[in-house]
Design a protein around this nucleic acid. Structure first.
Length: 589
RNA sequence: UGGGGUGUCGCCAAGUGGUAAGGCACAAGGUUUUGAUCCUUGCAUUCGUUGGUUCGAAUCCAGCCACCCCAGCCA
């Protein structure tokens, strides 16, 4: 069976349609300023630079939406670049998953996928240039010694004994590093900046380290790998990026980002860049930081997610309870909902925690507009309609959406024996209960008003069946002389399809699972984050539905077919989210 | 105790010297064959705090307070 690509829309479809202009934020102001001043001669070129060491999560979605939307809005481009400088932690599996997630969200990157590893040769040449100008040296300090020499937050560091190694020797040593003459960690290439700098990133940061490991893109061609700080700014520069957006924790790295670019010959950068053969004046990229997306009741961070996967807290990166894009997708969350959410939360520099209800709102908003309605009984209670003939099989026609006629109609079988949900019947109903009760009436959605004439109990004293009668004059119209308030959903017992339904709820009960006051995030887990129901009954039209998109099970919530475990013989649905429910029984919160 | 940041409604967030947008949440009504959706209304005399400049300050200045990030050859 095809995976349930609920609501996947082609790129550039109206994720944030509404015709309203995008909300103002400081990055848009910046770009508009740059456009006005002609700084980049009208170019806007961003990039999304994931490290392929895990799956993308909703926090990445914010960055993806930001970078791609900005480029689109201002007529620019956005590259996809894998920041693959640490092969020990990365893999092709992650590369593939990340590409797929971005396309699913509805974005298309400019040209070919980039890899920082594409630039290893240029990066090496630039390093040689730094050595030649006396701005980098090969250091023999071990990682442990280097830490001691670095000083502390309040004390300056000390110079490496190799800091004044002659240029010729540095050149030779660096080449030998590349040739594989040394072991991991034996030497490193460092920038010669200032060991007394108050910003620790400027205390002669490492540019290259020795790692005898295979790289998922370059194989065994290299045994030295450039660090993030050295690679990122140069990759941006090579790709002609104008606005290099990243999160707040990189703020302290900005001086280094600029130092590296400014201490290299500008023309040599230009020649190595995508702008080499263009008419554009070459201008260095600039880094701008914004606050990460955090959502309460969730845990972010690839490290944490990876831990949940590896320790079996969830079933995998695509567990529907995970905040990964793969998980949200399998849960039935649509790309449009995520894109709207990312726009709704805004972009700023203050560290904030967005309320989960905002995401939920976006999910419901999109699904309400796009999900066809269907009826599914989660906890079946048999109802026999005494005045309907057993042979009298009927087919009712019901709209797929209560407001959007263009979504068409479906056929719903109706018969003498039907199922309703156990929660829609109460022998002793609480005040305000609008559903079925002994002797009471209720509307069967899209069908007749029924009256409960008799309640049948089993040996344990539980309600096992209801005998009801229909009011034959109430199909498509209200009864005369009385008002029936309640409407409940139902499924024909003979035509209904058996199904398993997974009710997902938030994974955490605590607002901030990462809080230090929690010894282990596992202590904050919701034990009921997944409840699987068997023996549910769903109307047969779910099978005919072409789209396989998300459904609304009327009065229950939004559901999608599970992409992995569902097939034509055994239907499995995942609850994406419940409907809002403002009903409170009297006396209860 | 070094450096870099941030503080506007319960939660996001606009605002860039002229008298506090918007969304979420919440509350109250209305419509409704989904207790959904939709609609209407309400929801910061006040912008971390204390002073100062000004006819006028969330916006400018000074001090203070709180919180976040940085001592990986991770990104």
């Amino acid at each position: 069976m095809a995976p349930s690509d609920s609501g996947n829309k082609p790129p550039n479809s109206q994720a944030q349609s509404k015709g309203t202009k995008p909300p103002s934020n400081f990055i848009r102001h910046l770009i508009e300023q740059d456009l006005a001043s002609g700084k980049y001669e009208g170019r806007v070129h961003t990039r999304f630079p994931p490290e392929p060491n895990g799956y993308l999560h909703i926090g990445h979605a914010k960055s993806i939406c930001l970078n791609f939307s900005l480029a689109e809005e201002y007529g620019g481009h956005c590259n996809l670049r894998f920041d693959d400088t640490n092969p020990a932690k990365e893999s092709q599996e992650y590369v593939d998953a990340i590409k797929e997630n971005i396309l699913w969200l509805g974005f298309q990157w400019q040209g070919e996928v980039r890899y920082a590893s594409n630039y290893f040769d240029q990066l090496y040449d630039f390093a040689v240039q730094l050595i030649n100008s006396g701005k980098a040296y090969v250091c023999s300090l071990s990682p442990h010694q280097a830490r001691e020499f670095r000083g502390t937050l309040t004390e300056p560091g000390r110079n490496s004994p190799d800091r004044d190694r002659p240029i010729g020797e540095n050149l030779d040593m660096f080449e030998r590093m590349r040739q594989g003459e040394f072991t991991d960690g034996e030497y490193s290439l460092r920038a010669k900046i200032d060991m007394a700098a108050p910003n620790i990133n400027m205390r002669d940061p490492v540019l290259y380290r020795i790692r005898h490991v295979n790289h998922h893109q370059t194989g065994d061609r290299w045994c030295i790998y450039p660090t993030y700080d050295y690679t990122h700014c140069l990759s941006d520069a090579i790709e002609g990026i104008t606005h290099s957006l990243c999160t707040l924790e990189f703020e302290d790295h900005r001086p280094l980002y600029n130092w590296i670019l400014q201490n290299l010959d500008l023309d040599s950068i230009r020649r190595a860049s995508d702008l080499a053969d263009t008419e554009f004046r070459y201008v260095l990229p600039e880094q701008t930081e914004f606050a990460k997306l955090r959502i309460n009741y969730t845990m972010g961070g690839k490290r944490n997610l990876k831990d949940m996967v590896e320790t079996g807290v969830v079933t995998g990166w695509d567990d529907p309870r995970m905040n990964t894009l793969a998980g949200l997708r399998r849960r039935g969350v649509t790309p449009a909902a995520i894109r709207n959410f990312c726009e709704m939360v805004g972009v700023a520099r203050s560290e904030s925690v967005v309320d989960m209800s905002m995401l939920e709102h976006c999910i419901r908003e999109d699904l309400d507009n796009n999900a066809p309605r269907v009826m599914c009984v989660l906890a079946p209670l048999k109802v026999t309609l005494s005045n309907v003939e057993a042979a009298q099989e009927m087919v009712l026609t019901m709209p797929n959406h209560p407001k959007i006629e263009a979504m068409g109609y479906r056929e719903v079988p109706f018969s003498r024996e039907i199922y309703i949900d156990r929660s829609d019947f109460e022998v002793e109903p609480p005040p305000g209960f609008k559903r079925l009760m002994p002797g009471g009436e209720v509307r069967l959605r899209g069908a007749y008003v029924i009256r409960c004439d008799e309640v049948i109990y089993n040996a344990d004293g539980e309600v096992s069946e209801l005998i009801c009668s229909i009011d034959p004059d109430t199909l498509g119209r209200n009864p005369e002389g009385r008002k029936v308030k309640g409407v409940i959903h139902w499924v024909s017992a003979s035509a209904g399809l058996p199904a398993r339904v997974r009710l997902y709820d938030r994974l955490f009960l605590v607002e901030n699972p990462e809080d230090k006051s929690l010894e282990d995030y596992r202590d904050g887990l919701n034990p009921d984050s997944l409840v699987e129901l068997t023996g549910c009954v769903v109307e047969p039209s779910v099978r005919a539905t072409e789209t396989r998109a998300g459904f609304q099970f009327e009065r229950e919530g939004y559901f999608c077919i599970d992409s992995l475990d569902s097939d034509d013989d055994s239907l499995v649905f995942n609850r994406t989210i419940t409907l809002r429910d403002s009903w409170k029984p009297a006396g209860q919160g």
